[in-house]
Amino acid sequence: MNIFRLLGDMCHLVAIIILFLKIWRSKSCAGISGKSQVLFALVFTTRYLDLFTSFISVYNTVMKVVFLVLAYATVYLIYLRFRSTYNSESDSFRVEFLLVPVAGLSFLENYAFAPLEILWTFSIYLESVAILPQLFMITKTGEAESITTHYLFFLGLYRALYLANWVWRYHTEGFFDQIAVVSGVVQTIFYCDFFYLYFTKVLRGSGKMTLP
């Protein structure tokens, strides 16, 4: 474990908690892409199956359980508890255009042709594009509440910190996970446009982020 990965995991946790609390307290999921949240729940489900087969550390196990519980709880809030506030017409990204290529690629490009390994690879590829429905929804509605932009900021920052973690691990222990690194770079690139708007608009105190 290194400071970059720890900070990254904390940013990830903060992002997920920000979103959950926003929906729970405002009793509304307006402006939130349910599709992205379903994709994230799928990412955690396919990645954390080793919860039952291998024990890494208490931290690893606890964080996996927390991420899974919060991801499913958020999906529950969106599609069941506060479904009347869900903007399904704005959440129109065709997720099959993500799932099919990601599934195909995870069969083609993986470290081992074994069920757990392919599912893990699928989760890595899927995570890099899972935010697209949410970013697409924001471009469609042309705006995002500031709390939603803080959620996206921490979510984007988490994987950027993981890139630093991989640089650190490469130089200190020769660790290099090509699939995770390439996907992590792609994932972080998708946030660049948002980061620009976040720093120029939201942090200037304009509250809402309205797209040009």
Binding site: D9, I56, K64, Y111, Y162, N165, F176, D177, Q178, A180
Partner: peptide, 10 residues
């Protein structure tokens, strides 16, 4: 043994 074998990251 391949790079992803040791999956100690979240």
């Amino acid at each position: 043994d391949y790079p992803g074998k040791k999956k100690d990251e979240l």
